[in-house]
């Protein structure tokens, strides 16, 4: 082994960080990109099927706007508490983070409940025709994302009430907030496709 000469001392560095400093943030970003890729492919398939059929929607009334708009409103409402929670996590303020986690858990649960009514409001079944298939796929994909982040938020919320609620966990909370923005943003896009393209 060749001899070494120390030129840097790392001992003063912090043991966790937020945002672009944190590898988990980059990992989250990568998973967001992958999931976005999935959404983009699904939307492209939607447009492709709509294009080859010329008549759209296929033998079904356009979907109802009630439940989906409720989900949209709920998700948009969650923007602010999500931002507030992220800031509290960066401040490492445990009390605020606990409040924020509970609020965000509830705000992640609400759209999931409304989603139960949203599937029938599509006015078409997945096995009726290709239009039904692609709508159920888009809505199903987004539901999986909601579910994933709901589970993630729930586990983190519980964690913050245990002895583990300090240090790097704050960074995890911040990354979870980051992911939630993506859940909201992807719904805004899907909402337009599922509910307004059939009305064009």
């Amino acid at each position: 082994m060749r001899p070494m000469r120390p030129v840097q001392d790392l001992s003063g560095l912090p043991s966790y960080g937020f945002g672009t400093k944190s590898p988990v943030w980059w990992g989250t970003l990568a998973f967001v990109a992958i999931e976005d890729g999935g959404f983009i492919v699904a939307i492209a398939s939607y447009l492709y099927i709509a294009f080859v059929n010329r008549v759209w929607p296929l033998r079904a009334p356009p979907p109802d706007l009630g439940p989906c708009t409720a989900v949209l409103v709920l998700l948009l409402i969650s923007l602010w508490p999500n931002w507030w929670l992220d800031r509290a996590a960066r401040e490492e303020n445990l009390r605020k983070v606990r409040i924020g986690m509970v609020v965000m858990t509830l705000l992640a649960t609400a759209p999931l409940i409304v989603r139960i009514w949203e599937f029938p409001a599509l006015n078409v079944l997945w096995d009726t025709n290709a239009y039904g298939s692609i709508n159920w796929l888009l809505l199903g994909l987004h539901t999986i994302h909601l579910l994933t982040d709901w589970g993630d938020t729930l586990v983190l919320a519980v964690l913050m009430f245990t002895r583990h609620g300090h240090g790097k966990r704050f960074s995890d909370v911040s990354d979870n907030c980051f992911y939630w923005y993506f859940v909201i943003a992807s719904w805004v896009v899907l909402y337009l496709f599922i509910y307004f393209v059939p009305r064009l």
């Binding site: 060749r2 001899p3 000469r5 840097q8 790392l10 001992s11 003063g12 560095l13």
Partner: peptide, 10 residues
């Protein structure tokens, strides 16, 4: 070639 510079403190 003579000595590899390194960082310490982990």
């Amino acid at each position: 070639r003579r000595a590899l510079p390194v960082a310490v403190g982990l």
